[in-house]
Simulated assay, not measured.
Amino acid sequence: MIPPIHLLDEIDSTNAEARRRAEGGDASSQWIVARRQSAGRGRRGREWNSDTGNLFATLLTLTNKPAAEAAQITFVAALAVADLLDAFATPGAVSIKWPNDVMLDGVKSCGILIESGTQASGALWLAVGIGVNLAHAPEGTERPATSLAAHLRSDIAYPPAIDDAATVLAETFAVWQARWESLGFQPILDAWTARTRGLDGPCVARLGHETVEGTAEGVAPDGALRLRTADGALRLISAGDVFFGAAA
């Protein structure tokens, strides 16, 4: 079942609104979508550019899964965004970069931020924040960014409107979430791996307190990146800024 979509003209952050609703006891699954954010956030507290015409959406949902397993929803989100972009982009343009950056011709086009907490009832809530560059790409970012508008199929003149894109995203997310909940993580990981590049070559992982260089050797069963360092040690990277094929 597809959760209802609440479309707002402006909000500080769709993730912040999801948190407020969850901490207020709202136990219903729902999408919170905004035409504009005044205080959008990316990973590690980075500002998320909020140009009008792009998609800013958060799925608020509850789960009975333990926190470590619930974190797998980031792979579900990446697949859902990839399917959304596939509906409008030139064939073959869409790919995924570990763990959840969705790329158009190798350039980042979206951001995904997962936040969570526990309600008074003990249920774990998840806020799956998704920002997709539909019409515009931010400038001056650490790594290049692009928008769907620059990669449209030849028979499509304009990127989808925000409400239309939100509907497609809700539909694709519901499909992958249902597979995850009924079949477990492996089918999700298999589909994600088929779309992901760079899992068998040089990479650099910036982990905040250290930078690790080596060769990627695929992913572990839980989705962690397997990184073989020059001394032969195997590191499992669960989170961090990872760059494939070139130095960070």
Score class of each variant (00 low, 15 high):
residue 123 A to T: 04
residue 124 L to M: 12
residue 124 L to I: 10
residue 124 L to A: 12
residue 124 L to Y: 06
residue 125 W to D: 06
residue 125 W to S: 05
residue 125 W to N: 07
residue 126 L to V: 02
residue 126 L to N: 01
residue 126 L to S: 02
residue 126 L to Q: 09
residue 127 A to R: 00
residue 127 A to M: 01
residue 128 V to K: 01
residue 129 G to L: 12
residue 129 G to W: 01
residue 129 G to Y: 00
residue 129 G to E: 06
residue 132 V to A: 12
residue 133 N to D: 09
residue 134 L to G: 07
residue 134 L to K: 06
residue 134 L to E: 05
residue 135 A to H: 12
residue 135 A to F: 03
residue 137 A to D: 00
residue 138 P to F: 05
residue 138 P to T: 04
residue 138 P to I: 04
residue 139 E to S: 11
residue 140 G to T: 03
residue 141 T to L: 15
residue 143 R to P: 01
residue 149 A to P: 10
residue 149 A to V: 06
residue 150 A to L: 00
residue 150 A to C: 04
residue 150 A to V: 04
residue 151 H to A: 09
residue 151 H to S: 10
residue 151 H to G: 09
residue 151 H to V: 11
residue 152 L to M: 10
residue 152 L to A: 07
residue 152 L to I: 13
residue 153 R to T: 10
residue 154 S to K: 12
residue 154 S to P: 08
residue 154 S to W: 05
residue 156 I to N: 11
residue 159 P to V: 05
residue 160 P to N: 15
residue 160 P to E: 06
residue 160 P to H: 10
residue 161 A to T: 14
residue 162 I to Y: 06
residue 163 D to H: 11
residue 163 D to P: 03
residue 164 D to K: 12
residue 164 D to P: 03
residue 166 A to T: 00
residue 167 T to I: 14
residue 168 V to K: 15
residue 168 V to N: 02
residue 168 V to G: 03
residue 168 V to M: 08
residue 169 L to T: 01
residue 169 L to Y: 02
residue 170 A to E: 00
residue 170 A to C: 02
residue 171 E to V: 07
residue 171 E to Y: 03
